[in-house]
Amino acid sequence: MISTDTEAPQIEVRDLTLAYGSFVVQGGLNFTIPRGQVFIIMGGSGCGKSTVLKSMIGLKQPAKGEILYRGESYWDTDDDARERLMRNFGVLFQQGALWSSMTLAENVALPLEQYTALGTDEIHDVCRLKLALVGLAGFEDYYPNEISGGMRKRAALARAMALDPDILYFDEPGAGLDPISAKLQDDLILELRDSLGATVVIVTHELQSIFNIADNCVFLDPETKTQLAVGDPKELRDHSEIFAVRNFLNRGTLTPPSVSDDEPAASAPAAN
């Protein structure tokens, strides 16, 4: 699963527009994510972050534009190729989305049974290992409703990692976790990136996590319904020309600039 092909960027989003019916959620999105990067999609609540994620993982067809995985356009290819691309994703949904009628081990085992030639014993061992990696050794035979929300999230991470995916997607990984667990989760994400060589895409607005783990980020604006900035979040926090971006990354502590100061920059979308 881990290849060393580095020529085309792992993920490239080109002129992406997402809409529900005639209601445009986000438009004109352009960014590239090189292999091995931790990339954050951020923005205020309700700006369409999760919708962008949905279209990247193949759940929502974009109204316009394309999403390229190593140069291959996800939405323009045939079903077989799409399924092959999809198998390289691991997705951690906001609430975990574990299959509630299966035990944790069965949850992790399902992708393995479907896509590998491993025998029952080997699958059992892999499940134990993956659950141990997220600190859930011994919980193999528990059902998702028998464990806490934080544990469910970790179990879902184990399932997302089952096939050693090239790309891991996280939807609000820190939501509902206490500060210590959130920190541990951040460390785990970096660990996974380093050891698996995976590319990580995270939808979040938790600043602490963003500054801890992000290499790069895109800022989505609910007002103009497009991206306002792409770059290293620390850089953007201190030096972005756009007030809304700086203010967001500074937890809203900045005083609004006078009209002559920043306004021209803010009206030019997608400034880098």
Binding site: R84, M86, R87, F89, W99, S100, S101, L110, Q114
Partner: peptide, 20 residues
């Protein structure tokens, strides 16, 4: 009821993203 509840819990989406 079973499939509907899976839908509410995004379990169906979780299947789809695995290519199932």
């Amino acid at each position: 009821a079973r499939i509907g509840t899976m839908k509410v819990n995004v379990e169906v989406d979780a299947l789809t993203t695995l290519g199932l």
